[in-house]
Amino acid sequence: MTTPVPIAVPRKGRPLEAVLERFASVAGTDAESLADDVSSTLRYEKAVTKGDLEDSRGPYERLADYSSPTEPHAPEYTLLRDDRDGMPRRIVFDSVLIDVGDVPVHLVGREEPFRALRTHEFALGFDSADLVLEEVVDLRPSGVSDLEDVNARIDPQESDVRVVTGLGDTVHHTLMATPELLPAGADLDRDFLADYEGDLCISPRYERLVTAVLGTDATENVSFTYPSRDADEEEAAIVETGIGVYLTVTGSTAREHGLVLGEHLFPSETVLMANAAETSETVDRVRRRLVREQADSVLSV
C-alpha cells in the first residue's frame, strides 16, 4: 500500500473550507460529502463557541459523537482553546484520509501550516498568502500586488517554500478613506498613498504585511495606527484616522461608514505551497492533480 502523502492544512475557517472544496473538485463524490460534513460541523461549533447556539452536550461529548473509529476515512477533530473571553474549548479539524486518484493523502490540521512547511515537516500545505508576506517576502521600495510577485521576493537562503497557486477564496486588502481626505478628482490608489504623509490605520501586527504590499517608499512617511480594543468595526477606526487598509469582500460595511473604497492592493487568498527540498515523484503527482484545473494560474516554482 502506498504511504499517504501528508499535507498541512488550516484547522478551521474560510481557508480550510477552500482547501476542502479544492479536494472535492479533484477527488470525487466522497470528497464532496466529506467537505460538506466537515464544514457544517465546524460552522456549528463556531456558533456554539461564539454563544450564538446552545448545546446541552459538553465539548468532550460532542467530540465523541463526531468520532467514527470504525470508518478509516472519517474526519477526526480535536479541542483547542479559543481566544474569546473565557477562552472556551473549541472543536476544530484534526485530520482525514482522502484518495486523490490512486494516491492516498493525509490532511493534517496545523495552527500554522506555512511554518510547518518551513521547518520541513511537510512537502505540501495550504495557508493564507498573508502569512507568506509576513514571514519571508523581502521588503523592497516597490510593493507587491499579486501572487506572481511573491515567489520572486522569497530569498532562497531564507526558505525552500514557494507558492504554487491560489484557491480563489479571495478577500482583498483594500485602501479606503474618508471623502474629505481626497482632493477633487483624485484616485485613491498607490500613487495617492506614495504622496501621502500621516497616519494610516491597519490591523494590529500587520505592519510588515502592509509594508510588503505598499513598498518601503510609500510607507516611509506613514505612521501606522490601530483600532482600539473597544472598536466594534475596523471601518469605524479608519473613519477616525481618515485613511486605512483593511480586508474587504463587497465593501458594503465601509460604504455604510461613509468611506471611499480605493485600490484592491493584494489578494488575501488561501494558497497551495510546496517545499522544494521535500519533493518526490508521488508528491509531484498530488500537486499536479490539485492544480490541473487551474493551469493558467499556476506559478513557477
Rank of each mutant, 00 (worst) to 15 (best):
G242R: 01
E32S: 09
C201K: 02
S142K: 11
F126D: 00
E256L: 11
P69Y: 10
R289W: 11
F23C: 10
R11W: 02
D149Y: 08
A236R: 10
A152C: 04
E180W: 12
S228I: 09
L131Q: 10
S159E: 07
S300M: 14
G13K: 06
K46H: 15
D232M: 06
V213W: 01
V210P: 00
M1W: 12
G28F: 03
G244P: 07
T253R: 14
R14Y: 11
P15F: 00
A31E: 09
G86M: 11
D83H: 14
V105E: 09
L188W: 00
L117T: 00
A8L: 07
V5R: 00
A74I: 09
H264Q: 14
L79T: 03
N151P: 05
P75N: 02
N151R: 09
A254P: 00
Y196P: 02
V9E: 08
T174R: 09
S300V: 11
D232L: 11
E234S: 02
F126L: 06
L175V: 08
S297Y: 14
M87S: 14
S25R: 15
G143D: 01
T170A: 09
P141C: 09
L167N: 06
I98W: 10
P6K: 01
R43D: 12
E76K: 06
A18C: 08
R288G: 14
S223Y: 12
E197M: 02
C201M: 14
V301E: 10
G86D: 11
T3G: 07
T49C: 06
L175I: 07
N275Y: 01
L117K: 00
E235S: 12
S252D: 14
E121M: 02
L34H: 01
L193F: 03
F114Q: 05
F224K: 00
K46M: 05
K50W: 15
T174V: 14
T41L: 06
T29N: 11
A231N: 05
R205G: 08
L265N: 05
E293C: 05
E233W: 09
P10M: 08
V283R: 03
C201T: 02
E233M: 13
V19C: 04
S68V: 05
T178N: 07
P113G: 01
D199N: 09
D149H: 12
D155M: 10
A18D: 03
E234D: 07
T174E: 07
R62C: 08
V271G: 00
N275V: 01
R292Y: 11
D55S: 12
V108H: 03
E158L: 15
V150A: 02
T165P: 04
F114M: 10
E220Y: 12
G125M: 07
S297A: 15
G28H: 04
